[in-house]
């Protein structure tokens, strides 16, 4: 089977490669490019650990062929930090609010939350929960994940984050 020549803008940098058409985007990112931020969790399109941003959409990179991303702009967790190396607001919020326990789902959660906040600037709690429904946390740490996203949204909207009474 002929290999395909692909080009993409990956975390702002041009990347070119020859790939077998059957190469999944997650395998391309992890094994060819060496970006191991996006994780392989379930491999069955359920868990969302492999979530990356593809042309402004969150996708599960275990269910996209690398050739389908030819010509696309791809953002992974490695591309989230600010240019000066400081953490992105969402990364900072996940740290501050314990939005991670084992950390396995975190890259997917943060890239997904990033896209969600592009689409809904100041989401309600239920919009956040619905918006991250494609990302599973096996530690079941959803409370703090939601809290971290709320805190990041507040910061991005120039508001002080007030925790709801528990």
């Amino acid at each position: 089977m002929a290999k395909s020549h692909i080009k993409m803008k990956l975390n702002g940098k041009d990347v070119e490669a020859l790939v077998e058409p059957r190469t999944l985007l997650i395998h391309f990112l992890r094994e060819e490019v060496g970006l191991t931020g996006p994780h392989i969790g379930c491999e069955t399109t359920h868990c969302g650990a492999c979530t990356v941003d593809l042309d402004g959409k969150s996708v599960k990179s275990c269910t996209v062929f690398a050739v389908q991303a030819d010509g696309a702009e791809v953002l992974t967790i490695e591309g989230m930090a600010n240019a000066d190396g400081s953490l992105h607001v969402l990364q900072e919020a996940f740290r501050e609010h314990h939005g991670l326990q084992c950390g396995f789902c975190t890259p997917g959660m943060i890239t997904r939350a990033h896209r969600l906040l592009q689409e809904i600037k100041d989401p309600s709690e239920s919009e956040i929960r619905y918006g991250i429904a494609g990302n599973l946390c096996r530690c079941t740490g959803y409370q703090n994940i939601v809290k971290a996203i709320q805190a990041a949204a507040a910061k991005l909207n120039g508001r002080e984050f007030k925790e709801a009474a528990e």
Partner: peptide, 9 residues
């Protein structure tokens, strides 16, 4: 249908 990632695609 499914979840956000799947509805995008």
């Amino acid at each position: 249908i499914a979840d956000p990632q799947i509805r995008y695609v």
